[in-house]
Amino acid sequence: MKHIKTIANPKHNCINPKSGCDECRSSCQSACKTSCTVGNQVCEQKKKEQQ
């Protein structure tokens, strides 16, 4: 395409049987303690798949 370049196509809201395992960290337990930041976390299932 001439005018548009796609950088990421994550389909991040797709529903799959493994979603919702809840093994990821509580988002406030990391560094912030004053805000809720979920988007910079990584899914534990995907982390396992990559290992």
């Binding site: 990421a8 994550p10 991040h12 809201n13 797709c14 529903i15 799959n16 493994k18 979603s19 919702g20 395992c21 809840d22 990821c24 509580s26 988002s27 406030c28 337990q29 990391s30 560094a31 912030c32 809720c36 930041t37 979920v38 988007g39 910079n40 976390q41 990584v42 899914c43 299932q45 995907k46 982390k47 990559q50």
Partner: peptide, 27 residues
Amino acid sequence: FFHFVLDLENSPCYKKKLSGCGAGVKY
């Protein structure tokens, strides 16, 4: 830098994105 960390391809599932930090329930 914590707030610039972003992994669009491996971000948490929809359920997590709806529920947030879980304070008062899971946390």
